[in-house]
Design a protein around this nucleic acid. Structure first.
Lengths: 192, 192, 192, 192
DNA sequence: GATGAATGAGCATTCATTCAT
DNA sequence: CATGAATGAATGCTCATTCAT
């Protein structure tokens, strides 16, 4: 068991190193040698855990994405009202994005560059289904505007990525009240 | 004058080639040699017009950004009411983003990766001032929610970048009515 | 004894794996890891039986060569007439080369590339002595042309390596009559 | 013209360097860096003249092979009698193989290892056609044994490769008389 | 201005070999 | 005996940039 943890440690160290370096310098300015050094292993060791550089970053993307999804729906139940459910999810996501800055920044970079192959990106999208179901319910009940999921997403969740940018560059940090007000903007955008 | 236009032609050809290639393959998968080939010049010629690769992409960023800004405020006057003014700007931007796909895509990629130095990015932000002024007026008149400019931007303009993604990948194309409805979402998000 | 056989099994498995892989991909395209995998052992295990890669291939060379020599002189006795003796040896070698394709191919590759050190190669040549003795006798008796052993070898035995190539690449398979006719060519080349 | 010669010089220097190094150390023990150094250019320069390492060695193979073929049929005409024609070609080849040692050695190594792809090898075989035609004529006239071309080749031309080995390793150098006697062996092998 | 030949620095990846278990 | 995780050293290849013409 100790052994397994140690192995897992190296894999995790490599993923963490990649996260940090890709965030700071981008995919192609992050040599494998630097990843190895930061993770405290020899370059060749990376290839014991990942097929190649692309595989390493793909795996990182998927694992971060999964972590994100898990947080997004923590405490969520379909028994909640549309508004309560949406509020829960929105705050979950907002809290994740505003606290897990490194992870969020990485996902944003992946989603907006040819760094990740389309195929992998699509795989990372599956997890949002509960939110889409919630929106469908809201549209049926006449509570939410009859817009496509893409538009709903664009005006409620996607804006949070932008606010992260501020947070990260220390331009502005959202207070709890501001977060509340911001939620109101998101909700007003899509509610009937 | 003819000669100057010809020279300018090469510069433009280089910028266009860069736009296309960086969009399709990313900054670091776009060798100077390919840019030169697509522009129909020799690699060394690039260095007659730009200092180096970074300079080339910086200049491209700034010029695209300026073009974008010009479109954003076309027909705008401070005499317009807050809502009318905002509507005009919003549709200008929406139309730009949904039609000038290559340019928009490029800007999105730049804004979400370490490809462009912070300094340059900041320089590209100056042009939005009229919109910020408009929002200030709206807040003063009690028409617009008293949120920071960042939040207002995040929930009205920034979402359009996401919708572009759909357009580009042929997932969904916005009809004129949908665009109207989408504007309503943006306006509802920030109006009192 | 059983245990020793088992150990010996692993050694043999390694030699066989090496033979196959070097034949198909060449010495330098045959990683130790693949040899180990094909032999069903761990890479490190190779070093229990052989000093290093070069040693492994040297040993293989010598053992194959010895096997070849044993076949070459099977049933041979110095009591036979020069022609009968030569015929026996020639057919022995021909049959070996045309049936033990893997082994022959390996030897050919070794003998025509810097894969094997000269020193080892020389060691593998000792075994042909009876054939050289036979030729000496033939020359003394005026039955065989007074050519150097090298030339005699070049025009009788060496050609068989070429015919193997055909066999291996399925270009042409020698029938029994053709083999007889081919022997005649070899004999005519060196007989007075 | 001077310029073109200079360019051609580098290509030739690279081919020569490759010939020498591959002969001495084998394909896979010949790094591009050493080829470059011996040719007096930077490693990257190789890629201006050849696509990659395999292409470099393929091109070398084909050019050497062509040179060899040209020598083989120098002075040959179909008007010659079968024996005279064969004699001419045989001596041409013998002289080439015994003097152009580096080239011959390289060809031998290529022909007996997986270094060269089959496809390329086949391309290098085209040139021998006149010899095959000559043999056909000889068979028709009842002068040459009715063996397949492969066998005829194996017992007349192929042995010369073996003799080269001696020459190269300074074991034995053929005198002119020995060469004559050796030719007799070759001719005896295939004549009726 | 324009070129293309040339290159130095860098990088992903492989592999023979070792060593703790 | 046997292993497999780990690695240092090497290598093929790319590319931004320069410079003589």
């Amino acid at each position: 068991m100790i052994k397994k943890e140690k192995i897992s440690d190296k894999r995790t160290a490599l993923l963490n190193a990649t996260l940090t370096l890709v965030n700071n310098h981008g995919f192609h300015n992050t040599p494998m040698s630097k990843i190895a050094k930061l993770a405290g292993v020899a370059p060749a060791t990376i290839y014991l855990y990942f097929e190649n550089k692309q595989d390493l970053v793909n795996k990182l993307y998927l694992e971060v994405k999964e972590d994100f999804s898990n947080c997004a729906f923590e405490g969520y139940s379909e028994d909640l009202s549309v508004k309560k459910g949406f509020e829960l999810i929105w705050f979950n996501i907002a809290n994740y994005k505003l606290s897990q800055i490194k992870e969020t920044n990485f996902l944003t970079q992946c989603d907006n560059s040819p760094m990740i192959e389309e195929e992998i990106r699509v795989e990372g999208l599956k997890h949002l289904q509960p939110l889409l179901n919630l929106w469908q319910r809201g549209k049926n009940e006449g509570i939410i505007k009859p817009l496509t999921d893409y538009v709903l997403y664009a005006f409620t969740i996607y804006p949070l990525s932008f606010l992260l940018g501020m947070q990260e560059r220390d331009i502005h940090t959202l207070s709890e009240t501001e977060k509340q007000e911001t939620f109101k903007a998101a909700w007003d955008a899509i509610r009937m």
